[in-house]
Simulated scan of single mutants.
Amino acid sequence: MWRRTLKAAFGQPDATAHLLFLRDSQTVTRIHFLHAAAHLGVLAELKSPSGQEALASKLGITRSQQFGLFLKLGVSLGELADDAGTYRLKGRRAKALVGPNGNVLRALLDEQIEYHGSVYRELAEQLRGGPLGDYLSATAAVVAESSRIAEPVISSYVTDVVTGAGPTPRVLDIGCGSGVYLRAASQNAGATGQGIDMQPASVELTTKNLTDWGIGDRFHVTQGDIRKGASEADGPYDVVLLMNNIYYFAPEQRPALFETLRSLVKEGGTLTLVSMFHGTSPTALNLDLVLACTQGCYALVSPEELAPELRAAGFRNVTVDRLVARESLLGIRAS
């Protein structure tokens, strides 16, 4: 019988495509399972093995049949193990979601399902002239957290730039978020400076973080909008940072932005800009599409587009650095 079944399966038109879709559907199922398991608290509780009944009691779950199926799905996917009715974490992804970097990975799942999923669900309407989506109002915190997945790479780059700026450089971080790149700048023991952010919550968070990191005497943060000028910036600076936020500036705003930033950079200093740029990888093109469909965001640009704008603002030398192999996460240094 199995031979007849196999023959029938491979007798389908585009049999290979059928198999590929089945494989892809399992990946989607895994993502949905991990997303739900993280939000339910299942993964956190299973850091210590537990039976279904005890686990359900801790999590306030009352539908035992459905919960049992959910746990069996986790076992089938290899994310959970069932040792004679006692469940525990097994898969690397499940373990990582409750590990030291779990917040970032959980935010990455949330961004894919809640933000990107909404974009694709509404894409047909948008492409036919419907309004762009107001996605960030509900997902801004998730996006900010998930973007930290590139933090180690970008922080290392910032540290290198600031270290090369001399023994006592002044550093300005535009849109400083949590202040993590000021922390990277502080690896140069003589560095001082400030961050600027539009959001009061970010200013409060950065202020707390700078104190907790022991660098509050060297760096401070101010609320402000760089698009309205440089009055809060207290320049000039040896290094000005623009990290992962160029796509929040409309193309027509960029020339004035770069002129303002040029006025804040000392002669011989550097504007350092990091972003995903327009590229051909699925990661870059997906982000490009998502941003282009989101109110208040703009499609990714290419370094070739930015270089003339930077030179027109008064920067003479523009250098492009690739930060990740085969991806368009780039650093631009303009001096």
Score class of each variant (00 low, 15 high):
residue 219 F to L: 03
residue 71 L to H: 05
residue 325 A to S: 14
residue 126 Q to I: 13
residue 76 S to M: 05
residue 113 I to N: 07
residue 249 F to H: 06
residue 334 A to L: 02
residue 224 G to S: 05
residue 88 R to E: 10
residue 153 V to N: 09
residue 24 D to P: 05
residue 261 L to A: 08
residue 253 Q to I: 00
residue 302 S to I: 00
residue 270 T to E: 15
residue 27 T to G: 10
residue 225 D to G: 09
residue 184 A to R: 00
residue 256 A to Y: 00
residue 292 A to E: 15
residue 70 F to H: 05
residue 305 E to I: 08
residue 316 R to F: 08
residue 312 A to V: 07
residue 57 S to M: 09
residue 40 L to C: 05
residue 272 T to M: 10
residue 251 P to E: 12
residue 82 D to R: 01
residue 41 G to E: 13
residue 173 D to E: 11
residue 319 T to R: 12
residue 233 A to S: 14
residue 101 N to R: 15
residue 43 L to N: 01
residue 43 L to M: 04
residue 197 D to N: 03
residue 105 L to G: 07
residue 277 F to S: 06
residue 72 K to G: 07
residue 218 R to A: 06
residue 88 R to L: 11
residue 255 P to R: 11
residue 209 N to Q: 14
residue 29 T to N: 10
residue 59 L to M: 06
residue 257 L to S: 04
residue 25 S to V: 07
residue 24 D to G: 14
residue 59 L to T: 06
residue 35 H to M: 06
residue 278 H to Q: 14
residue 84 A to L: 11
residue 305 E to M: 11
residue 217 D to K: 15
residue 306 L to S: 07
residue 239 V to M: 06
residue 13 P to F: 07
residue 246 I to K: 05
residue 235 G to W: 04
residue 102 G to V: 04
residue 14 D to N: 14
residue 307 A to Q: 11
residue 129 G to I: 04
residue 136 L to R: 11
residue 294 T to Q: 08
residue 169 P to W: 06
residue 301 V to Y: 11
residue 226 I to P: 00
residue 53 E to W: 05
residue 167 P to R: 04
residue 224 G to A: 06
residue 11 G to M: 08
residue 26 Q to C: 10
residue 38 A to H: 05
residue 324 V to D: 04
residue 19 L to S: 12
residue 143 V to A: 14
residue 261 L to F: 01
residue 190 G to F: 03
residue 123 L to K: 08
residue 39 H to M: 02
residue 95 K to C: 15
residue 183 R to T: 06
residue 240 V to W: 02
residue 288 D to G: 08
residue 269 G to W: 05
residue 287 L to Y: 02
residue 193 G to S: 05
residue 193 G to I: 03
residue 333 R to L: 11
residue 139 T to I: 12
residue 113 I to C: 10
residue 117 G to H: 11
residue 72 K to T: 11
residue 52 Q to R: 13
residue 32 H to K: 09
residue 74 G to Q: 01
residue 287 L to S: 07
residue 207 T to V: 03
residue 305 E to T: 09
residue 272 T to E: 14
residue 317 N to F: 08
residue 271 L to M: 03
residue 108 L to I: 07
residue 230 A to Y: 03
residue 296 G to W: 07
residue 92 R to S: 13
residue 18 H to N: 13
residue 280 T to C: 07
residue 43 L to I: 00
residue 297 C to Q: 15
residue 184 A to F: 02
